[in-house]
């Protein structure tokens, strides 16, 4: 408990990370309370009010179908965070479990799992996701599936590395000498050592996943109209780049701020967890 406080104390001093966390908290709030914040229905079309610039009624103007950009951005937060949380959840849990099993059992199991990881890593992640999503057909669900299939490998690798070093420690042998079973040792002694790395990876991963999902949506493979999604908003605004740059600037900004917030938080967490780095600074 005191250690948690210590880590939190280090985190609090890191302004970038704290800014990131505040932005993430705001985004979550916005996503949950989207109907409250948004001035209009995000998919309601007003063809007589197309491509308006900002006004009191439409703070960020309207798009080519007369929909309120502000409302679409706000509802888009829901979609992006949902995709991020689901994909990171699936990849982090499955990757951690596979890495744990691979590192702990060693031998042929380890060999098989890690060679599969190597195969996945041999392809550039986004391209592989593109192929999978293209193969399964467009849709947000398929994009999540594709990103999950691609994303678990880094968790597996990091956790396996952690397990390999923890496995040899004397306290694991002591636990075994006192009658601890494999499951007990894996989850009670080995997993806690790997957890900080997983948390850092997952936070950084959120940004990556949101960006990839937006990219796939931009390419037309993800969210389908009229769903308000940042990537697809960018895509539909592309045609009006010269007459109404708002249509692309605001979704772009939303993506950028969100991804940066997650990256700053992830970096901050990594620094807070890494005791060696802190010691170095204190000397």
């Amino acid at each position: 408990m005191r250690d948690t406080l210590e880590i939190f104390g280090r985190l609090k001093k890191n302004k970038m990370a704290m800014t990131g966390f505040v932005i993430i908290a705001l985004l979550i709030l916005v996503a949950i309370l989207a109907p409250l914040f948004s001035p209009h229905d995000p998919i309601e079309q007003h063809l007589n009010l197309r491509l308006l610039s900002s006004s009191w009624q439409y703070p960020l103007g309207t798009d080519d179908l007369g929909r309120c950009i502000m409302s679409r951005l706000i509802y888009g937060t829901r979609v992006s965070l949902q995709v991020g949380i689901i994909v990171v959840g699936i990849t982090a849990i499955s990757g951690t479990l596979l890495g744990l099993v691979a590192g702990y059992s060693g031998g042929i199991v380890d060999e098989v799992i890690m060679r599969i990881v190597d195969v996945f890593l041999a392809f550039p992640g986004l391209i592989l996701a593109l192929v999978i999503a293209g193969f399964l057909g467009p849709g947000l669900f398929n994009v999540m599936l594709a990103l999950s299939v691609v994303g678990w490998t880094k968790y597996a690798r990091v956790v396996r590395g952690c397990v390999l070093s923890v496995k040899e420690k004397a306290f694991v042998e002591a636990a075994r000498a006192l009658g601890g079973g494999n499951f007990y040792i894996m989850f009670r002694h080995v997993l806690p050592e790997a957890l900080p790395s997983v948390i850092v990876l997952a936070t950084l991963g959120m940004g990556g996943v949101i960006l990839s999902a937006a990219a796939l949506s931009f390419l037309g493979l993800g969210a389908q109209p009229p769903m308000p999604e940042w990537g697809s908003m960018l895509n539909s605004g592309r045609t009006f780049l010269q007459v109404a740059p708002r249509l692309t600037i605001f979704p772009g900004l939303a993506i950028m701020i969100t991804v940066l917030a997650f990256n700053f938080s992830g970096d901050g967490l990594r620094d807070a967890f890494d005791i060696r780095q802190v010691k170095k600074l204190e000397i």
Partner: peptide, 13 residues
């Protein structure tokens, strides 16, 4: 039950 030479390394930190 068994106790070892290096108690420091036998306890999970």
């Amino acid at each position: 039950a068994m106790i070892f030479e290096q108690p420091a390394t036998c306890l999970n930190p």
